[in-house]
Nucleic acid binder design. Structure first.
Lengths: 317, 317
DNA sequence: CTGTTAGCGCTTTCAG
DNA sequence: CTGAAAGCGCTAACAG
């Protein structure tokens, strides 16, 4: 920058002004500066600016997911980016692998790199250590699962309502004996909510956490299945097909899947809006950075039943 | 940091030393410093360190994809992260949306934030503007598509070989009339390679870029289909099922898909290793940062045929 | 409108 | 082993 200044025959401040587009600068000088920048291949050091800038803002935020490679989280990431992009804010992204220690490392890693905010799919149960950072002005938003030990903005899918809707959809098609198939109780918020939604809507609960095959081949088979999670849905689908029951036992899955429309019968799902989750989280975050100072807000996004066939099989008496 | 120093009754240098784990420091003083850090809730500013540090390294890299929300790129991202993590290197990630201008903005955005390296799925054709940055010591690696105007390390999938393998697989099952279904020529490297691989392996090419239905319902229908891209595969699958031809016309797709094993017949694919692409790219990058200074390297990852049924249908005479 | 100057938070010689 | 001091690249008063 010094070089640019001397080459253009101006002071550092002038270079800084043109680089940052701070208005009061003579067009002629500005042009000289631009030329020098071009010639020297000067690249502005935004980080150094952050150090000195009054606001201290870095136009950088951090995202922490269970796994950046998981399409669900990748979609959230994309949603966040869409709104961040409008402000020229760039995103760090990392995977906690559902490991609280790793999550902590990542948080410290991005905070040490002076992000303006943090969007977190929480894995640890205690985030009280972030209170100091929030007090120091950092934005903090939780996505997909609520915070437990800190009062922070968060955006969730209506998991409970979605599960309820799935079951009610099946009941509307005459089913009474509807089984819940989901991951073993794992302390995960979304899993618990979906189970709760199922329990809300069903008269006689029938919950299975592992292999469904015994249930399907045993006596008194359920006439419909609600699978509460992506991988479970896929696994159950496989079982159903292997047993040749796909046209007999109705099925609704939580979360949409590629090819869900191409299998036979096509799979009815309760879809959530991952992109919307990301967008909403980013919006909450930026509103804080813009000075909003009210108490923690909660945004809950609805789910949507997508009828494709498997969920509309009538209960055979 | 000043506060920590005065609270611990030591100098800034000492605090810096314990924070960075630079050996020669009295354990007793170190303990005092740790305590002060804890009490004050001090958060080290890694960015400021980068500014002064002799190496100038930020332990930060930038990734630019077409779309961070696309599962293929998300998997690459994950692969990169796996190796970056071992060095406590944190990753920026952004989406170019296949727009050269947007790509440029993103590149400038992360370079301005002083990343040590850049991993790029290139969209623009000219990246010569990066030569200066490479000369300045930044690491640069291209993934999935090779660079055109700059000599840089890159890692690719063997798209051509994979396409050839798909066709040969079909030929081995008695097919001679094999159609290629792929995106319209779009200047995309991977698309061109896959078409080339098909042309390598087939005697009488039959190429369709849009709707396959006319071909399938017309006279002299092909006995097998090779679909060269994910979305095309899904679309064709739908068509095949709608026409009831899924058990008649053999089909191999490029790229694996969720549920490919659950449809009927299950879909045979040529799978590529997105995770491996990311890992290899990161390794090339870090070897440069570690001082490797040889000429640009190319890594080509093989594909793998996954037989599931649709590709093993015999040609009916 | 432009230049001078102080200093952001840190690391690194260089002396002790 | 520790401290003093210089300075990384930049922005923000402030004075002209």
């Amino acid at each position: 920058m010094k070089d640019v200044a001397s080459m253009a025959g101006v002071s550092l401040s002038t270079v800084s002004r043109v680089v940052n587009g701070s208005p009061p600068v003579d067009p002629e000088l500005a042009a000289k500066v631009e030329r020098a920048i071009e010639l020297l291949g000067y690249r502005h050091n935004h980080t150094a600016g952050t150090l000195r800038r009054a606001s201290g803002l870095s136009s950088t935020i951090g995202l922490i997911f269970d796994d950046v490679g998981n399409p669900f989280f990748a979609a959230i990431h994309r949603g966040v980016e869409e709104v961040a992009r409008e402000r020229s804010v760039v995103t760090f992204a990392g995977s906690s692998d559902a490991d609280p220690e790793r999550e902590r490392e990542l948080v410290e890693g991005v905070l040490g790199r002076r992000v303006d905010g943090l969007i977190l799919v929480p894995t640890a149960h205690d985030h009280s250590y972030l209170k100091r950072d929030v007090a120091a002005g950092i934005g903090l938003v939780f996505v997909d699962r609520p915070p437990e030990t800190i009062d922070a903005d968060h955006v969730l899918t209506d998991n409970r309502g979605g599960a309820r809707a799935a079951v009610e959809h099946l009941r509307a098609h005459g089913h009474e004996r509807i089984a819940f198939v989901g991951p073993a109780p794992n302390g995960l918020y979304t899993a618990a909510e979906r189970l709760a939604g199922y329990l809300d809507a069903v008269a006689e609960p029938l919950v299975v956490h592992d292999d469904v095959e015994p249930l399907l081949t045993g006596p008194d088979r359920p006439t419909a299945l609600f699978t509460a999670q992506n991988l479970v849905t896929i696994e159950v689908l496989r079982t159903l097909h292997r047993l040749g029951l796909q046209d007999t036992v109705a099925h609704v899955g939580f979360d949409d899947i590629v090819l869900a429309g191409s299998i036979e019968p096509a799979l009815t799902v309760v879809a959530q809006d991952a992109l919307g989750l990301g967008r909403a989280a980013a919006e909450l975050l930026f509103s804080r950075l813009d000075g909003f100072n009210g108490r923690a807000r909660q945004v809950v996004l609805p789910t949507r039943v997508i009828e494709r066939g498997s969920g509309e099989l009538q209960a055979s008496s």
